[in-house]
Simulated scan of single mutants.
Amino acid sequence: MKITKEEVRNLFKHLENGDADSFFANVSANVDWTVMGTHPLAGHYTSLEDFRQNTFKRLAPCLTAPIQLVLKTVFIDGDTAIVELQATSQAKSGWDFDNQYCWIIEFRDKKIVRVRAYLDSNMVARLIAEEEESTKVYFNRG
C-alpha cells in the first residue's frame, strides 16, 4: 500500500505541534537516516536512537526554544515522499535560526525506514560552534 500526501501531512503535524515523540513513533527503530553536509550533525545513522541523540538532542541546548518545523511541500512517488520543511527557532546568542530542510523519505508499511536530509550546513555549523565555544570550561592550572 502506497503512502499518500494526506498521510504524510498528518504525520508531520506531530512535528509542527511540537510532539516529536508521536512523529518518531512512525519511524523504524533501525531507520537508515543520512544527514547530508559538512557540519557537526552530518552523518549516517543506522538507528532512531543514534539519530535523535546526535541531531535533535545536540541542537536543543543551542537554542532558546525547540525548533518549530512547518511542512511546506510534499511530493509523493510510490512509497517515497519528498518534503520541504521550514525550521525556526533562535540561537542562544540571539540570531534567528531559520533553516530550510528537504527530506527524501522512504516508507515501508507506512513506517519511515530511510531518510536523506538536506539543510543549510553553514547555519548548523555556526549554531553548534557558538554554543559549544560558549560552554567550554577553562581550568586554571596555577
Rank of each mutant, 00 (worst) to 15 (best):
M1K: 10
K2I: 02
I3N: 06
E7N: 11
V8N: 09
R9N: 11
N10L: 14
H14T: 12
H14F: 07
H14Q: 09
L15W: 08
L15V: 12
L15K: 10
L15T: 05
L15C: 11
L15R: 12
N17E: 08
G18C: 03
A20V: 01
D21M: 02
D21G: 01
D21W: 01
S22L: 10
F23Y: 11
S28Q: 02
A29E: 04
N30A: 12
D32I: 08
V35A: 06
V35F: 11
G37H: 09
H39Y: 08
P40W: 12
T46K: 15
E49C: 13
D50R: 09
F51Q: 15
R52M: 12
Q53L: 15
Q53M: 13
T55E: 03
T55Q: 05
F56L: 04
F56G: 00
F56R: 00
K57C: 09
K57T: 05
L59A: 08
A60K: 12
P61A: 12
P61L: 09
P61G: 08
P61V: 11
C62A: 07
C62N: 02
A65F: 02
P66F: 11
P66W: 13
P66G: 09
L69I: 04
L69W: 12
V70M: 05
L71W: 00
K72C: 07
F75A: 10
F75E: 06
I76G: 09
D77T: 07
T80M: 03
V83R: 01
V83K: 02
E84A: 13
E84P: 10
E84L: 05
L85G: 03
L85C: 01
A87Q: 07
A87L: 07
S93M: 04
G94W: 02
G94H: 07
D96C: 03
N99M: 11
Q100E: 13
Q100W: 05
W103F: 03
I104Q: 04
I105C: 02
E106K: 13
E106I: 07
D109I: 09
K110A: 14
K111W: 14
K111G: 03
I112Y: 00
V113W: 05
R114M: 10
R114Q: 14
A117Y: 00
A117W: 01
Y118M: 07
L119A: 02
L119Q: 09
L119P: 00
D120C: 08
S121L: 02
S121H: 10
M123K: 15
V124N: 05
A125W: 06
L127Q: 01
L127F: 05
L127V: 08
A129W: 04
A129G: 04
E130M: 06
E133N: 10
K136W: 02
V137H: 00
Y138N: 10
F139M: 04
F139G: 01
F139Q: 14
R141N: 01
R141Q: 07
G142N: 05
G142A: 03
